[in-house]
Amino acid sequence: MATLVLTELVAFDAGPSVAAAPFVAAPPSATPYATVPVAAGLLVAALLAGCGAAPARQRSVPAAPPSRAAAPPVRTARSRPPAPPEVPPPPAALREDSGPLTAKIREGMPANRAAALRMTEQARGLIANGEQAHAIELLERAIAIDASVPYAYYFLAMAHYGAKHPALARPLLDRAQQKLAAEPYWLAEVQVLRGQIAEEEGRPADARAAYERALRVFPRNAAASAGLARLGAETDSAPPRDGAGGGAR
């Protein structure tokens, strides 16, 4: 508004040949010498109006809730091509987190949480050795000791998948996904396992979608890439459908 008034002042001083501003009309009988006090008054008015129209201040950020685990630090990629609109921007920390879960045990961590992490890591080894039933027993115990450890749900799903119980694995993956929302590496692992289950159940479209989701949250997930490649190869090698470019019967 101050700009508009000043513009009009300039126009007024320059005489009638200058086009008047849309909503402030020049009075026909005004003499040149009356413009100075009028201009000063208008200037003061403009300044006073500008004070009341100070730009909105940023609201103070709410205090962080007391019990939430610290979110990983935000890092932006230095150079990345614009993401396609349907893919959400890559989330924060894209660190590999494939090390032992016991590395997450810190001084002062609640005892039951540390115990659950250790049990989960031990179960991870049992799964690798094909001892699914023992891993299931240990992971259920880990969850009973501290249900806030998200990895226990993921590995329990993996153990049930290995034991040919996909129906038990799926809701566990839902739970793991909920709890691992702030950990892209593990979120991707959850999606990969979903994809593997879907592949085994003969649902390639669901599997592909899961692998793609994995790569969206963690682009370096090798298993997801391999899964997509596998599904792509299977699609390429599939025989042509009847009427789809083949010879007439």
């Binding site: 709410p62 205090a63 809730p65 007391p66 019990s67 939430r68 609640p110 005892a111 039951n112 949480r113 501290d146 806030s148 909920q178 929302a181 702030a182």
Partner: peptide
């Protein structure tokens, strides 16, 4: 050990 209720994403205190 005592444990507090976790505050889920999507809730503001």
């Amino acid at each position: 050990s005592a444990r507090d209720f976790d505050v889920p994403e999507g809730v503001t205190l």
